[in-house]
Design a protein around this nucleic acid. Structure first.
Lengths: 217, 217
DNA sequence: TAGATTGTTAATCGATTAACAATC
DNA sequence: TAGATTGTTAATCGATTAACAATC
């Protein structure tokens, strides 16, 4: 166990799980590496390789048991317990995150929001919103591991400092500031402007008559 | 010109530009590949390699001219013209996108929003919101190239079909449905649940006593 | 049994890094 | 000139794919 795994690999594990759940809903009991590869647009070799790295075994000739795979992937991805997260910065994007429906389905629960603006603070809401000064105490008391940062750009690094001090281990950062990860904390930066910029690059490149890299995700 | 470029590469070009603008603001006139590498946490070899692929030349011994680099990167990344985009799905996340301040700075302009809910439609707003039935006519008339999809999950594929028919060439998809790109349209999927799931995996892995892959972004 | 599929090893591919000649 | 930095080529690294023996 405990494999050195890249981000792409974990992404694929998530995708396998997602497809398998759909197949299960359709009544599938077993599945072949070929099926999964087709569904995700990757090679069957990759599927088998990934599985073997995580000791997800099948039967020669018989393929893989859907239920069994989902169960094991749930353990690997930690989907069996509810994962608490907090949202720091309750502006438009932050509020959207707090009310995001998709989370519950994936056993993710937003435990609280934090902001500095007194007019948005509301400790009695369905999801309470506290003052930023309560952030560190909350994290420690509730043992929160993961935070989403949706503050204005100017607040990003200060908030990261606060989070690191309180022992947060994972950050999803939506501000345009590129935050750096460390030994004790993984950071994923989602830079929306840059995503758009990136798309425009490929679109313009296509126009030049060189249809390159039409890759997804 | 016209280099085969991966997504990571374009991401780096964006990052170079961003750092260079900051350096310029600090009064830098020239910069070495070493400086840029340090700033972005990559090797100086990589910086020089990237630059040489895009004919961004410097002077042996003298480094690179900041102004010159920014100018050339602006051309490569298409930052000299305002880039029109539209937002399909004006719920919480969609509205946040429409009002996102970061866009103007990057010369990105949201030309319109689209939705099916009559109560949110407002063709006279600062950024007009039209009925989804007006989508295709608008795209053709305004020659929009790029769209953000922020509909509920159930609407994602239908909207993609509409967009492709109208000739959209780039899509930034925030729904949990994984949309596939094609020859004529590049798709970037941002799956928020999956980002969180991914973070939890690494956090749990750390706990296991194997501090792997603490990489950013 | 014959056919099909896994699990794993070897080959390939692409991207990053190291090294160094050119040269300012 | 001596020292430093680019630009490019070669070496390395990691991830993906192909191939195939094992076997159900």
């Amino acid at each position: 166990m405990s494999v050195t795994s890249s981000r792409e690999m974990v992404q694929r594990l998530s995708n396998y799980r997602s497809v398998l759940c759909k197949l299960k809903a359709l009544g599938f009991v077993k599945v072949f590496s070929d099926n999964l590869g087709d569904a995700l647009g990757i090679s069957s070799s990759q599927v088998r390789k990934d599985f073997s790295l995580f000791d997800l075994t099948g039967n020669k000739k018989g393929g893989y048991q859907v239920d069994d795979l989902i169960g094991k992937l749930n353990v690997i991805l930690g989907k069996n317990t509810i994962q608490k997260i907090i949202v720091v910065g309750c502006g438009k994007i932050g509020t959207a995150m707090m009310n995001y429906n998709g989370f519950s389905r994936e056993s993710i629960k937003v435990a609280a929001g934090f902001d500095t603006d007194p007019t948005v603070i509301n400790p009695r809401g369905l999801i309470p919103i506290y003052d930023l000064s309560d952030l560190q105490a909350f994290i420690k008391k509730e043992q929160v591991k993961i935070a989403i940062i949706t503050t204005p750009e100017s607040g990003a690094t200060r908030v990261q400092d606060l989070l690191l001090e309180s022992g947060i281990q994972g950050i999803l950062n939506f501000t345009p500031v590129k935050l750096k990860g460390s030994e004790s904390c993984v950071v994923h930066n989602v830079n929306i402007e840059q995503e758009i910029e990136n798309l425009f690059y490929f679109v313009n490149e296509m126009k030049d008559g060189s249809p390159k890299n039409p890759n997804s995700e």
